[in-house]
Amino acid sequence: MIPRSRLLLGATFVALAAALACSDMVSPTRGTRYDWRLIVDYDSAGPRLDTLSFHWPRNRLPVRIWVEDSLELPSRVREGIALWKGALLYGEWDGVLVSDSATADVIVRLTQPPPQIPIRLAGRVLSCSGATDVDTVGTRFELAVPVRAYIFPTIPGAADLTQCLRTVAAHELGHTLGLFQHSSDSLDLMFSEPTARFLTERDVGTITNAYHFTADMFPVGP
């Protein structure tokens, strides 16, 4: 027979566990966002628009990024990778620098972009600028890889050049992640003329939504 003291101890334990066991975690609201999707004409015969979402599929991670080794641009891009990676709670995106551009998913060059291609997301800050080209390969559902981004000083030797490159690198990286529109809020990193040093709540909300929204476009290429 089990002594009363032990029964009492067991009963106390069960009662405590039962009293505490009543809680489930509550998800945060992530309503704060801007539209990130790419809007394309898909029929030249009429004004027809298609709004398309993109994110890197999990099986393509980490995204391989080649960066031109000049003006410490690799360090700026590394900081951008950490910024975006840190915004995503579930490892939805990851990036790694590679040494051969032939094997890259994203190529970041320190130069002005070549003549206009169909879809270019360009931004400008005081002492440097950037642009990311989005090539949909003639079908709306395929994104040509490598995605190319361009970052270049507009005032060489400017005092704030390092910070400018940091901001623009993170901004262009945001485009390569799938944020294909600009925010209308000047405080956001994805504003067309960004000055933000960090991601705002709206930037975080937008990238989180983008990586859990069903993708319409898929990366195609090497």
């Binding site: 566990a17 505490l20 066991a21 009543c22 809680s23 489930d24 975690m25 509550v26 998800s27 945060p28 609201t29 709670l89």
Partner: peptide, 20 residues
Amino acid sequence: DYQRFNTDELQSSGFGRTQD
């Protein structure tokens, strides 16, 4: 054993309460 799970990162991301 029984615990009410939470982490600092979840809290700073806006998760409320805890998970049994």
